[in-house]
Amino acid sequence: MVAHDCWSSYYNDAFKHATHACCGAHIDRELEGVIQNHRQGWAKSMQNLLAKLYKTKSKLTARGQASAPKKLVQEFSAGYDRILERGFSRNPYQEPKERKRGKPKKGKVLCLLERLRDLKDDVLRFFTDFRVPFSNNIAERSFCMSKLKMKTAGSFRSADGGSNFCWIFSIIDTVRKNGGNPLKALEQLFNNSFSLAFFD
């Protein structure tokens, strides 16, 4: 499963066997841009729907449920479609006055609407499959340290240096996410006593 920000390159042959999920946080930011820059109410309705889906999923998982009732999924799906209908009626496609080379520009709002329509299953994946997170923020936070290192140091002097950094930081990040002590884990690593028993 790959959770991402809907870039078309993620849907190429390299990921054709993967299950896709669109990051809810990225979609929320795009909807916020439509609200602030274009004053369109459908975007706020979509934000509210996604927030309601998130809260409903949290309540269901707190009760020990592993999936949402089929009827509930259908109701939210129908609400999603109604919001998109409002969005498309507010932003009809207009043929360009002058025919130019390449694809005609549609504008950010219409492009977002088409993406939400075409990738509906992936947008709602976090609710139809409870194993899928709402966003990929955890993964992005994990990658942030590597980007910061590249920003401050420019690059590594050798491939081995970069590889060692990735190994060490992946251990630190994994242990921290599982409630362990990263410093203790590194001590164990250098003493050849490091264990992944905390995964059990």
Rank of each mutant, 00 (worst) to 15 (best):
K184M: 07
T128C: 05
S195P: 03
E140Y: 14
K71H: 04
H38V: 01
N136E: 15
K16F: 03
F190Q: 09
L50H: 02
P182Y: 05
W7H: 15
E32Y: 10
L110E: 03
K97W: 14
D28I: 03
G79A: 07
N48I: 00
S9H: 10
E98A: 10
Y11P: 04
R86A: 11
F134L: 12
E75P: 00
D121S: 10
Y54G: 00
Q74E: 15
F88K: 02
L31N: 04
F194V: 04
A159F: 14
F199C: 05
S146I: 14
R101N: 09
F198I: 07
S146K: 15
E187Q: 11
C23V: 06
K70C: 05
Y10N: 10
W167A: 08
R157K: 08
S8M: 09
L124P: 07
E114L: 12
T128M: 08
L49V: 02
K147A: 03
A25M: 10
S158N: 07
L119F: 09
G162E: 14
G162Q: 11
G64W: 10
L119W: 12
N48Q: 03
K52V: 00
N136W: 15
I83L: 02
I35D: 13
F143C: 10
I172C: 03
K59H: 05
L72F: 01
K16C: 11
Q47I: 00
Y80C: 01
M46F: 04
A68T: 01
F127E: 07
Y10V: 02
L113P: 06
A25S: 13
Q40E: 11
I27C: 01
F88P: 03
R141I: 06
G41A: 10
I172E: 02
C23M: 10
V123L: 02
G64V: 07
L60I: 06
P92F: 04
I83E: 02
E95P: 00
Q36P: 00
N136F: 14
R99P: 02
N137D: 12
K16R: 10
D5T: 01
L49A: 01
E187K: 08
I27L: 13
K177Y: 11
L53S: 02
Q47E: 10
